[in-house]
């Protein structure tokens, strides 16, 4: 009984080490392709469009209501203590530094990361990756590097867009639910939120994009076992990305100003 338990724990640890090792190996190979940059521009452009432009509606929707939720939660206390001058600052601070990059990162992982894993996994199962290799094309250079770059750039840009929309949402919800005028919201926001708050969140967004990219690509290109394997890989990629986002968020919150 105890032996079985230990064996299961050992197998899980070995499996975890293998996955982390695989991700680090992939990172190494991506870096080799980037120094100096040698990757496919057409494929990068296609991914920027697919991952970024097509994510705009869901990001806008998420961000708008995220800003609103921040104000809904605060509205009770704002009314109780008459702290209307803090609403703009509270919403901006929370959205820019934490809620914006975190929620958008998770949303991005669910929409783009899972799609990426499924796409790469299907390419493995249908021998498209072998097809590329048979044509002397390095799949890392042709498929992975453009995806990694696109995800980093696009999550960064989408977070900027999301931040703006979330603040607009917070201002509108504040006006309707907490009787905070737009002018009061703007004064509170502009006087208390600093550039460092914005950059703090944007650095996080870039790191989250990198994490989503690496995990989704790793689990995609290591798929084994047909359609069932693709499903398992998508699941693993989403879980790993979420874990990576939460852990790195914790570390970055300490490390960044």
């Amino acid at each position: 009984m105890a032996g079985n338990f230990l064996a299961a724990v050992g197998a899980s640890v070995l499996n975890l080490c293998a996955e982390v090792g695989g991700i680090l190996m992939l990172l190494f190979r991506v870096l080799i392709c980037l120094l100096p940059p040698r990757f496919d521009l057409d494929e990068t452009w296609r991914n920027l469009h697919k991952m970024g432009v097509r994510s705009v509606p869901i990001i806008v929707l998420t961000a708008f209501f995220t800003g609103g939720i921040m104000v809904i939660q605060a509205a009770v206390f704002v009314k109780k203590f008459g702290a209307t001058s803090l609403v703009g600052w509270g919403a901006g601070y929370a959205v820019f530094r934490e809620i914006g990059p975190m929620l958008l990162g998770l949303m991005f992982s669910g929409r783009v990361g899972s799609n990426n894993t499924a796409e790469l996994g299907t390419m493995v199962v249908t021998e498209q990756i072998d097809g590329l290799r048979a044509l002397s094309i390095d799949p890392v250079r042709y498929l992975i590097v453009p995806r990694v770059l696109s995800m980093i750039v696009m999550l960064f840009l989408l977070t900027i867009l999301g931040d703006v929309v979330a603040i607009v949402g917070a201002a509108l919800f504040g006006t309707v639910l907490a009787d905070v005028s737009l002018a009061s919201f703007w004064v509170s926001f502009s006087q208390n939120v600093h550039v460092a708050d914005v950059t703090h969140g944007l650095i996080k967004a870039a790191v989250f994009g990198f994490i989503v990219a690496l995990t989704s690509c790793h689990f995609g290109i290591t798929v084994k076992g047909g359609a069932v394997g693709v499903g398992r890989a998508v699941n693993n990629a989403v879980v790993a990305a979420a874990l990576g986002i939460v852990l790195s968020d914790y570390l970055l919150t300490y490390a960044l100003p």
Partner: peptide
């Protein structure tokens, strides 16, 4: 990377066709 020259001498049809979707 050096297998390029050899692979260029070969064309392959894969079992699943491996057409790029």
């Amino acid at each position: 990377p050096d297998r390029v020259k050899v692979r260029r001498k070969m064309g392959m049809l894969f079992q699943n066709n491996a057409l790029f979707d």
